[in-house]
Design a protein around this nucleic acid. Sequence first.
DNA 1: GCTAAAAAAGTAAAAAATACTTTTAATAAT
DNA 2: ATTATTAAAAGTATTTTTTACTTTTTTAGC
Lengths: 251, 251
Amino acid sequence: MANILERPLITITNIIWSFNQATQQIQVLLVKRAHDPFKNNWALPETFMRANESADHAALRLIKEKIGLTLAEFHTEQLATFTNQHRTTGERALSLAYMTFLPEMTPLQAGYGALDVRWFAFTPLEAAYQLSNQDCLFQTTTTTADEYYQDLPQTPSDQQLAFDHQWILTVACQRILNKLDYQPNILMILGPSFTLREARTIYAAFRKTSLTAIDNSNFKKTHQHLFLEAGTTSQLRVGRPARLYRLKPQN
Amino acid sequence: MANILERPLITITNIIWSFNQATQQIQVLLVKRAHDPFKNNWALPETFMRANESADHAALRLIKEKIGLTLAEFHTEQLATFTNQHRTTGERALSLAYMTFLPEMTPLQAGYGALDVRWFAFTPLEAAYQLSNQDCLFQTTTTTADEYYQDLPQTPSDQQLAFDHQWILTVACQRILNKLDYQPNILMILGPSFTLREARTIYAAFRKTSLTAIDNSNFKKTHQHLFLEAGTTSQLRVGRPARLYRLKPQN
DNA sequence: GCTAAAAAAGTAAAAAATACTTTTAATAAT
DNA sequence: ATTATTAAAAGTATTTTTTACTTTTTTAGC
């Protein structure tokens, strides 16, 4: 009986979000893979779960080892588990996907398994979203899960992320969008406190609209139940300094 | 390297919801375990994922084998994955939890691994929810995940569900509550079409309020963007027959 | 001090949610 | 058949929230 049970490898996939204060753009971390499969391809950071290691610990280790991040505090939450049998080419591996919201855009250092690590700018498209840097550009899909997995890329391509990472990213964006109105944890990428303008930037990106399409005055009224005033004001730009807010803790 | 990787057993746990038309109550399916650990205890239906089997297939097989259900169509969606190392006593097993919304309350038949299978009535409490039948009563928790897993029941008790199933059920209720306003898939337990009164019953239960606290006239206006008219009217009670509605399909 | 920029603060109109009443369509009793 | 009863649909006025827009405040730079 026991021999017919599946004991798959458990991949921890972590979508790491941050915010570039200089360009006011959302960033997603991608890794250039050092080993096959999908060697030389860009991918979401991944690691295999080890014996006697919790999934949370594995997600933490992933951030430290592969990317060289040493931040003390950041928020990680589970996204979903991806189990399609054709998502890997060789041995079966489930992907336990997490999202991490980094409170700052830290400098990166490629660790084991990575030829390169880069922040990619996250920007809205008409129907989807895209990740881009100077060299590459990737998009989220607009198809359904079934359609996507039917013709999964089995051979590496410069235009596509490794494995089913394009789909995982799509699910992540959908989740963030859904939670924008009742638990906007994505705002944690703005740091411990943020201005309403910064918050509106995030909302605008995921709702595929422009910053100016979201009225500051009305945004404040509609969302103040989610925020607490953080007292002091920032002084980064010309004009009247914005007040700072922080996320109201849950429960 | 490979030997230090974790290859855990994958448990598919399925929270099966349905609706008792006679009592107008929400039902959850529990199984009395035939084997250790937690032999003779009530638990959520579970099965191990097999080699070359998709998670979806395992969830389907679980419904057929353990419970004897032979319905043609039902909706299954992923809830979350539970990875705590202490959630099982023996060999490590991750729980890939799903929710199934059955369109009718079918008769049950205990299959392999089950001494008994029963529908439990799901009712709201002040702060939590409870499952009950003539003999037993279980509650969802009100603590956090960390607190819950710190003193997990390792020894069977008549008052508690097996493993961490009390916690899994709590997460399920929270998820359904969160999705009530934008994707109320739980309404699928009412069948292909439903009356507004039935829909209000579901909303009332998960919001821990009474049916009469949700005004029919206003409920219709506020939620019609989620529903489509299903034409015909039902004739089950005295009084003006209610119109039927169905869930508006996504996208 | 004056001007420009950017956010806060305020305000009136529009829209939506709520509480409540009336009408309609069925059953069951007379 | 007529009437009472039930329950839902439909309608309505009040309240509340959202939206679009205007004014004021607070800073930086000249």
